[in-house]
């Protein structure tokens, strides 16, 4: 496909949707105005015009797949024959699966917690220092970078050369200058997970930081001043006023990062491809989508396990939504 062709279909694709909305509404405006009694009828048609494209996409890409994936998890690798719980039994007995679950759990425990913690600390530090906004920009910047790009960046930190060579990876260079042996960081089982997590924390701290920053700004100044007049120390203010005030925000950020971490795929795929016991569920699933021509049953089971991870968050969000609707 030539570049010109590409530009053409990009243009066509976008134009298609604009045209749909414009033409259909234009026709309705002309015919809708002709008869007085049709007001409610006209409104219903308008609703249909407005929501149909989004609803079709929602149905095809989210609603149907959720049920289809559940169905496929009970079927064989081609999705043709019902095999009951066979795929689930396979998963439970598969050492790779158990390793992935364990890794995922460690990721879920470490990354959201540390990102949130660093975000909160840095937001508080930056808030009271004149060059704080520059600092925030710098720490926030990794948010803009792709996981793969971040992987390449960190490859330069973790790069390993034999002890006889000059180390070009920063971490090993430091280690060697301190008089230790260089290490192939990404191949040390269990520990390598933490080196991969460092990349994720490096990225997600920025997210926590900007949200905390916005939340900190919303704390009423009078409240802090009142506390100072009452003689509270800054540390005391931080722990007994700021932290409780930000409770909701902390929870929101923590869940947000948890959701991102549950789907984590790119970093591991790019850095180790799941080798040296670094695999997580999403990688294993990708693997099974194509391994041996693809096994939709096993792949689906893995997707469902990831989905189960978000169900508590989903339920909580819906509950909160209900509460808000009531008010």
């Amino acid at each position: 496909m030539t570049i010109l062709n590409l530009v053409f279909i990009v243009f066509l694709g976008i134009l298609f949707f604009i045209t749909y909305f414009h033409i259909s509404n234009y026709i309705l405006d002309i015919y809708g105005n002709k008869t007085l009694k049709r007001y409610n009828f006209e409104n219903s048609i308008r609703v249909i015009i407005f929501i149909t494209p989004a609803f079709i996409v929602l149905f095809i890409f989210i609603l149907y797949p959720v049920f289809e994936t559940i169905r496929l998890s009970f079927y064989d690798k081609f999705g043709r024959e019902f095999v009951g719980l066979y795929n689930y039994k396979w998963a439970i007995n598969d050492p790779e699966f158990r390793r992935s679950i364990l890794n995922n759990l460690v990721w879920l425990l470490v990354v959201p917690t540390l990102s949130t913690f660093f975000g909160l600390v840095i937001a508080n530090l930056a808030d009271r220092i004149w060059w704080g906004s520059i600092a925030k920009s710098i720490i926030f910047m990794p948010m803009a970078i792709s996981f793969v790009g971040a992987g390449v960046i960190w490859k330069f930190i973790y790069e390993y050369r034999g002890p006889e060579n000059t180390q070009i990876g920063l971490l090993n260079a430091i280690i060697v200058s301190l008089g230790y042996e260089p290490q192939a960081w990404l191949t040390i089982p269990m520990w390598n997970n933490f080196f991969l997590m460092a990349i994720m924390i490096w990225i997600q701290t920025g997210l926590a930081l900007v949200i905390f920053s916005a939340a900190l700004r919303s704390i009423p100044k009078e409240m802090l001043e009142a506390a100072r007049i009452d003689g509270a120390s800054e540390l005391k203010i931080f722990f007994s006023i700021i932290i409780p005030y930000l409770e909701q925000t902390i929870l929101v950020i923590w869940t947000l990062i948890t959701i991102i971490v549950l789907r984590i795929f790119d970093i591991i795929f790019a850095m180790t491809n799941g080798e040296w016991q670094t695999g997580v569920l999403a990688n294993l699933m990708y693997d099974w989508m194509f391994r041996g021509g693809g096994d939709s049953g096993r792949g689906s089971v893995l997707a469902i396990v990831i989905m189960i991870g978000v169900i508590p968050i989903l339920a909580w969000n819906l509950y909160k939504h209900r509460q808000e609707q009531k008010i």
Partner: peptide, 11 residues
């Protein structure tokens, strides 16, 4: 919050 992995195979 539905992870996109849920959709990959059916789509």
């Amino acid at each position: 919050v539905v992870p996109l992995q849920m959709s990959l195979i059916p789509i």
